[in-house]
Amino acid sequence: MIRGVIIDNSIQDQTNRHIVEVNKKLNLANSIIRHDINNCLSVLRGCIDLIVEEDCDGRFVQPVKILSSVTDKASMLIQGAKTYQEIGINEPQWILLDNLFEHCSDSHPGIVFFNELKGVKVLANPLFKKAVYNLVENTIRHGKRASKVWVFCRKKEGGRLVIYYVDDGVGVPMEQKESIFEYGSGVNTGWGLFLIREILSMTDMMIREIGKPGEGAIFEIVVPKGRYELCDHS
């Protein structure tokens, strides 16, 4: 009986090592491919610059504009793919939300932040910072008239913590409240809210949008019991 357990553990260890090795090779392959594509995009940008210099009569203004837009989008897609690849690589870490949103306030002077998350920590994927940044970018790009953001939290039944992110923009239409988290949704690259949900799910967090259309967006981030700390938080 004991021998059988040892054999099973040995097989499991071998399988785990194989999975780790395969993931390393996949990550390496993805990195090489991204590097090569970026090199191609650099060449394409150089060609676009040459066309602009030689286009004395402005015949190629519109084609150049289209090429530049497509090149920029391809570059953003590659960056999004890199971020998605990194989601499962690093171990969770404790992140102080107060400092995180203070940094967002400094880097987005056009938005006034009302931060009530002093002393709140969450055990999250290191890319949680990217998730927060994407939320702010979502407000700027889709909130249209948005100028203010409120962040606060409330403890709920079962020991869960709910973090609220509220803006004063145009809100989200009822029929889009779930689809906005799907890959390819919206304009630009389609990575934004999709990446947020994927990053949060790595530590069993959930996100949804519950705001009233026309009155601003309200995002709820649900943090499981044991994955947060409230230090000096009233």
Rank of each mutant, 00 (worst) to 15 (best):
V20H: 11
E21L: 10
V22T: 09
N23W: 04
K24H: 05
K24R: 11
L26M: 13
N27A: 07
N27V: 02
N27L: 06
N27D: 07
L28C: 04
A29Y: 08
N30A: 13
S31L: 10
I33V: 14
I33R: 13
I33L: 09
I33M: 13
R34T: 04
I37R: 02
N38P: 00
N39T: 05
N39Q: 13
L41A: 03
L41K: 01
S42I: 12
S42C: 07
V43A: 07
L44S: 11
R45T: 14
R45P: 04
C47K: 02
I48P: 01
D49G: 11
D49E: 14
I51L: 15
V52K: 15
V52G: 10
E53H: 05
D55N: 13
C56G: 15
C56T: 15
D57Y: 15
G58W: 08
R59K: 15
R59A: 15
R59H: 15
R59P: 05
F60D: 14
V61W: 03
V61I: 10
V61M: 06
Q62W: 10
Q62R: 11
Q62E: 12
P63I: 05
P63S: 03
V64C: 13
V64P: 01
K65W: 08
K65E: 09
K65N: 07
I66F: 02
I66W: 06
I66E: 12
L67M: 13
L67I: 07
V70E: 11
V70T: 08
T71K: 01
D72I: 05
D72A: 10
K73A: 06
M76L: 10
L77T: 08
Q79C: 00
G80M: 04
K82Y: 09
E86I: 01
E86P: 02
I89C: 03
E91R: 11
P92H: 14
Q93R: 10
Q93E: 14
Q93H: 06
W94M: 12
I95D: 00
I95Q: 07
L97K: 04
L97Q: 01
D98R: 03
N99R: 13
L100D: 00
F101H: 01
E102A: 09
E102N: 09
E102S: 07
C104D: 09
C104F: 06
S105W: 08
S105K: 11
S105H: 12
D106C: 11
S107A: 12
S107H: 11
P109S: 07
P109Q: 10
I111S: 08
V112P: 00
L117I: 02
K118F: 06
K118R: 13
K118T: 12
G119T: 04
G119H: 10
L123F: 14
A124N: 03
A124D: 00
P126H: 01
F128L: 00
K129R: 11
K129P: 00
K130H: 08
Y133F: 05
Y133I: 00
L135I: 03
L135M: 12
V136S: 00
E137G: 02
N138Y: 00
N138Q: 14
R141T: 14
R141C: 12
R141L: 13
H142L: 13
G143Y: 08
G143I: 06
K144W: 12
K144R: 14
A146F: 03
A146V: 05
S147M: 06
S147E: 14
S147H: 08
V149S: 06
W150T: 04
W150V: 05
V151N: 07
V151K: 03
F152W: 15
